[in-house]
Design a binder for these strands. Structure first.
Lengths: 236, 236
DNA sequence: ATACTAAGTGTAAAAGTAACACTAATATTT
DNA sequence: AAATATTAGTGTTACTTTTACACTTAGTAT
């Protein structure tokens, strides 16, 4: 068991690990993207194949390997399951109820990630049927394990800390202020004042103006902005 | 290994656990108290007996048992090591570097607690030599494992969230506003304006006025206050 | 009685937040 | 070419919150 093939699925791994499986640690990632056309957030979700949760949506998770740093495990999992590398990933909370996992004691460290929909073609050669599911749908249906709780906790954390969390990573490299505002509105679930919003993002230096403007839009073209790298984020 | 005697020390446990010890989970608690006379924070610290950290101060930690909820483990550890029950304990972060523990892979979930010095008589019949150590001293000396990092992270979290974290638990049941202010000043490491501080704690309803006043002080006796139970805290 | 000590109290300036409506620039339609 | 439709972009005022600041009060000790 020193060198688990990380492409096996969770079930297989757990079966193999019987000898040491008293306590195991997993990472579950709440992977957000923003669907600009629908002005809605979506979560990367897998179809659970484990009883009693078979068929229910689950977060993207996997066991942490013996020689793997926690943050590295989160990066690996996002890479393997969503084909995304070097993404922003932030730990939120660790969930350790005794009965949260049917196979045994699995303590799960939750992370969240912000990626762009286009960077993850869901369903692509992945046995778990990954797909982007509307956040609102997920919040209104049961999920596998305690993943509903993890999702709600993460969402709550992000809402509270929205100004210190790089939600802009869900946007294309060049974006308009209106797009940014819509994203914030989708997360906070409330409308924001356009002028006040702009004043704030300028003052906080969340973004930088670029020389580019929108092309081929049937209205006044918007200025394009990009992330201000070097901005502080909520890492302590 | 199903029923570890939780009074054994970490070393012993780890030795016993060889069979399953690929990954283990511990809880480390940053237990704060406030020394009113010194106007200083102190941390409950044990003397590490494990190489290569022998003799260095460590936080109060222990392995999580197989059938033990994470939060329950934290409560147990504080109860066993500090003889305090039903204390406020809040998870902050999980530390999972590969080499953070010399004996093997131990992932540690950090909690912090606020207790009253008087409620924990350090050194009392405890083989680990627990003692209250000045926070400032601890910050300026090496600690066992990654406990310096855990301490700094927790402190930083508490400073950021001071208004949503019940630091008042470090005070006696009845306390004066000046005592409360000194506590805040010790945590934030800066002086606060007396009138502004009072306005704020009243508006936030952190505390409640009581009918009592100070007795036998060589100056105008202060009004005594107590905690406002039912106040929201930073739990999501 | 006087001195000493920490408690207790209000106001004004500054900064930040919230509310609000019109003009500008482009593509499309006529 | 002119009119229309659509989203971008922009400032000011009222309100709230935060900050800065100094004197009087109620007890104990001498």
């Amino acid at each position: 068991m020193t060198n688990v093939n990380s492409n096996e699925n969770i079930n297989t791994k757990i079966a193999n690990l019987d000898s040491f499986f008293k306590l195991a640690i997993s990472v579950d990632c709440v992977i957000f993207c923003y669907r600009k056309d629908k002005k809605a957030l979506e979560i990367l979700s897998l179809e659970c194949d484990m009883e009693p949760f078979k068929g229910l949506p689950s977060l993207v998770g996997d066991l942490v390997l013996e020689n793997e740093d926690l943050d590295a495990a989160a990066q690996r999992i996002v890479r393997e399951r969503a084909s995304i590398s070097n993404v922003f990933l932030q730990q939120v909370h660790t969930f350790g109820s005794i009965d949260r996992h049917p196979v045994g004691r699995v303590i799960s460290v939750a992370y969240y990630a912000f990626i762009r929909c286009e960077d993850m073609k869901a369903k692509e050669n992945n046995p778990h049927n990954p797909s982007w599911v509307s956040l609102n749908d997920l919040l209104n249906q049961p999920m596998a394990f305690d993943h509903s709780e993890i999702l709600k906790y993460s969402l709550s954390h992000i809402r509270k800390n929205i100004l210190n969390v790089p939600v802009e990573n869900m946007l294309a490299p060049y974006f308009t202020l209106s797009e940014l505002q819509s994203l914030y509105e989708s997360i906070l679930q409330k409308t924001l004042d356009k002028r006040n919003f702009r004043k704030k993002v300028f003052k906080l230096e969340i973004i930088k103006k670029t020389a580019r403007t929108q092309k081929n839009v049937a209205h006044r073209p918007a200025q394009l902005y990009c992330l201000n790298k070097g901005r502080k984020v909520d890492i302590l």
